[in-house]
């Protein structure tokens, strides 16, 4: 699970900022690279699933760890 190319810490940020920051970070990455996202907004779980579905970026996995929500997303 430690494999990723870039990390985005969106802790403390609320909707829609985690999504907007993720979008911006993904834009600076190349296709196939993996972004690791850390968020504390519980709404981000559903939101990142929806974001992946609509943008084609693949949500590899997500888990909750000590009140944080961790996502790995592969850029399309």
């Amino acid at each position: 699970m430690a494999e990723f190319d870039q990390e985005l810490d969106a802790s403390g940020l609320n909707c829609p900022l985690p999504i907007l920051r993720a979008k911006k970070t993904l834009a600076s990455m190349s296709s196939g690279q993996v972004l690791h996202i850390i968020a504390t907004d519980p709404g981000s779980v559903k939101d990142f699933e929806a974001f992946a579905k609509q943008t084609g970026n693949e949500l590899l996995d997500h888990k909750e760890e000590g009140g944080k929500f961790l996502f790995r997303m592969r850029k399309a």
Binding site: C15, P16, I19, L20, A22, K23, F51, Q54, T55
Partner: peptide
């Protein structure tokens, strides 16, 4: 919120 999110999508 909606316009910025829509743009991100």
């Amino acid at each position: 919120i909606l316009a910025s999110t829509a743009a991100a999508l």
